[in-house]
């Protein structure tokens, strides 16, 4: 009998409104903010995934995106700027039954947390990572971010940014993510479906979610016109082919600065074991969820004295 009965509880009926917190039902993002679309898509995904609030651990970073935890009812961990991934991946290792989702902004994930992004992707932890990409620092009021286009002027880059922006999809691919997609707030149906796929994916699923910032990034507006690459004849490619995926990512990351927004699934690697599976296969993680052991009254705990008598005398 599991100590965590919310996990895989098939008896409970699920309504997406279960994910609206009674405490903060209304999000305080600016009117027209793309973040609303992430919240809506995520809530919409849950009934289809068959998950209840008590079996989901949502780990966020800091920024407007981090407030997602206040507006989405589940177990939440609103961590530090850039640090959602390390918290999330350890929680998943500790209890693989949990549905672990990490989320943050572009500054959070591609800037201050870039190292964690790279390594979490490399290790292929079984989780979805949603990056609210608005190409700007919103919460701190409009500074240039790692995805801001070259030449972007802000209070901290008064002569325009001299830096080329990060290419997040390519970065995820070369780091080792096994599912990579881009969604946009203006296309909620596609966004919901991508989130469902990302969460169901057994490995590290990176979703670069374009969330327009009407307050601080007037240039980005609504991320329109957009093209769903799966619906477009122009981008007929095999999403399981790494090289082809890289080419289309290149197109997407170039065109976004030329006024065309390409969204959809860019890379889907199937059959690759997740990090947890790898660890269990080589005997470096227990087969039973580690967290269960602490609640198991019959669990036998190894004694150090046996080791000491055997190896130190």
């Amino acid at each position: 009998m599991s100590a965590f009965s919310a996990i895989d509880d098939e008896e409970q009926e699920i309504d997406q409104n279960d994910f609206t917190p009674g405490i903060e039902p209304q999000a305080t993002w600016c009117p027209g903010c793309g973040d609303f679309a992430v919240l809506k898509a995520l809530k919409g995904a849950m009934p289809e995934l068959g998950r209840t609030p008590d079996e989901v651990l949502l780990v966020t970073g800091i920024g407007c995106s981090g407030k997602l935890n206040s507006y989405f009812e589940c177990y939440g961990y609103h961590s530090l700027h850039g640090r959602s991934l390390p918290v999330a991946r350890a929680a998943k290792l500790a209890n693989p039954g949990l549905e672990v989702i990490a989320a943050g902004g572009d500054g959070d994930g591609y800037g201050i947390g870039g190292n964690h992004f790279m390594h979490t992707a490399r290790e292929n932890h079984d989780m979805a990572y949603i990056v609210f990409n608005n190409e700007i620092f919103g919460l701190t009021k409009g500074q240039t971010s790692p995805t801001s286009p070259k030449g972007h002027k802000s209070k901290t880059q008064p002569h325009g940014s001299a830096k080329d922006p990060v290419r997040p999809l390519t970065l995820a691919l070369s780091s080792g993510a096994s599912y990579i997609a881009r969604a946009a707030a203006v296309n909620p149906r596609q966004a919901k479906n991508i989130l469902i796929e990302a969460i169901e994916h057994d490995g590290f699923a990176h979703v670069d979610f374009l969330t327009q910032c009407p307050t601080w990034n007037k240039d980005a507006k609504q991320y329109i016109p957009y093209t769903d690459i799966q619906d477009s004849d122009e981008y007929d490619f095999d999403t399981s082919d790494r090289r082809e995926a890289a080419d289309v990512m290149y197109e997407a990351e170039t065109k976004i600065h030329e006024g065309e927004v390409l969204t959809g699934r860019f890379y889907q690697e199937t059959g690759r074991p997740s990090y947890g599976q790898e660890k269990r296969a080589i005997g470096e993680a227990p087969d039973q969820p580690l967290a269960e052991r602490y609640f198991d009254e019959d669990a036998e705990w190894e004694r150090a004295v046996d080791d000491i008598a055997a190896h130190h005398t």
């Binding site: 651990l57 961990y77 640090r83 929680a91 290792l93 500790a94 209890n95 949990l98 967290a291 602490y294």
Partner: peptide, 16 residues
């Protein structure tokens, strides 16, 4: 940074 933060994630999920 990751080391210290991972340990928090594991503890939060119920592991010493």
């Amino acid at each position: 940074i990751a080391a210290a933060t991972l340990a928090l994630g594991a503890s939060h999920a119920g592991v010493k």
